[in-house]
Simulated scan of single mutants.
Amino acid sequence: MLDIILDEFHFSTLWNGGIFLFAMFAAIIYFFLLPASQKHSWWKSFAFIAGLIVIFIAIASPLNVTGRIKFSTHSLQLVLVLLVAPPLLIFGFKTKIVERVKSIGSMKKVVSVLTKPIVASAIFQVVFYSYHIPFIFNFARLDLYLNYFFLLALFLSAVLLWFPILSSNQLTSGQKWKYSFANIILLTPFSLILFFANTGLYAIYSDINLFMSALALCLPDLTEVPPEFFASLLPFDPVHEQWLGSLYFFVGIIISFTIVNFLSSKRT
C-alpha cells in the first residue's frame, strides 16, 4: 500500500537535494579542511561518513515523507537521528580541531558546562519532551523551517547527550553504564505513553485538514493534487502506529546505549 502511495510523489519530493548538498559539503570540510591527529584512523573517518549517511536517510530520503504519513516511521527517524548518527559522528570527528576550540578560554568553559552528564541529559530531555507535546508537535509539523529547527535542536542536544559516554576522560566505565541507564529510564515514559494510549495523540496523523497542510510542505504544487489523494493516505490506524512507534523507540534506546557503552568500554 505504502509503495503505491510513494509512487505518486515526484523524485525531488522523496529525495531532498538540499540535505544531500549539505552532507557532501560536511564531508568535504571533514576530509580536506579539518586537521587530523596522528591517532586518527580510517575507522573514524568511516564512522563519520556513516553518520552523515544515517542523517541523510532519516531526513532526506523517502523515509522523511513516510514519517509524515506514519507515526511509527517518525519513531524510526528519531532512532536514526538521535541514537545512531550522533555516536558515529562523535566517534569519527577529528579531535584536533576540538582541542583547538577548547583552548579558547571562554569556549572551554561553555563546552565544559554543556557536556557535564547532568546538564547534557537535562538539555536533551527538555528538548525531546517539549517537541513531542502534542500541540507543539502538531504546530511544528505545519511549518517546514520550524520543524527543521526542532530537528536541529534535537540533534545538537543528542550530541551533548552522547558526549559523556564517548569521551575518554569524563566518566569511568561504571559511571557510563549508570548514566546510560538513567537516560533509558528518563526516556521510557515517552514509549509507555505511546504504548498505552487508546487514542491518537497527534492530530497531524488523523485530522485530514492538518494532515494535508503538513504533507503539502513536501509537495511542489499542491494545486495539482486532488483531495481524494490525501484521503487515501490515511489508512493507518494512529493508535496502532503509536504502539508500533513506542516499540521501535524503546528497542532503539536499549540497543544503542548498550552497544555504544560496550564499545566505549573496550576502547578504555
Rank of each mutant, 00 (worst) to 15 (best):
K176I: 10
R141A: 11
F190G: 04
L233F: 14
T268V: 07
I53W: 05
Q77F: 01
F181V: 13
D3S: 03
F196S: 03
G252H: 10
T13V: 02
V84A: 03
A50E: 07
I90T: 02
S213A: 07
H10E: 14
Y205W: 09
M212T: 13
P189Q: 09
K116Q: 13
I136W: 07
E224N: 02
F139E: 13
S75T: 09
L83C: 05
F137Y: 10
N147M: 08
L14D: 06
H10M: 04
S130K: 05
F150V: 10
V225S: 01
F139H: 14
P226A: 04
M24Y: 05
Y179D: 10
P164Q: 12
S41Q: 14
D7Q: 15
S206K: 08
L201P: 05
I59E: 07
T66V: 02
A23K: 12
N147H: 15
I165R: 00
L186D: 07
N64G: 09
V251R: 13
H40N: 13
A120G: 09
L2R: 14
P62Y: 08
S191Q: 10
N64I: 03
M107S: 15
K94N: 11
L82S: 08
L160T: 08
S191H: 11
I193Q: 14
V159P: 01
S37G: 10
F128I: 10
P227A: 10
P117W: 00
N138K: 11
T73A: 09
V225W: 14
F257W: 08
T66A: 10
I53R: 05
P35W: 03
V54K: 11
D3I: 00
V110P: 03
L217F: 05
G200S: 06
L194G: 07
S112R: 04
W177C: 07
G200R: 08
A26V: 10
T199P: 13
L2H: 15
K96D: 13
A182Q: 06
I19H: 09
L63C: 12
K44V: 05
L160D: 13
F229N: 00
F155R: 06
G105R: 00
M107G: 14
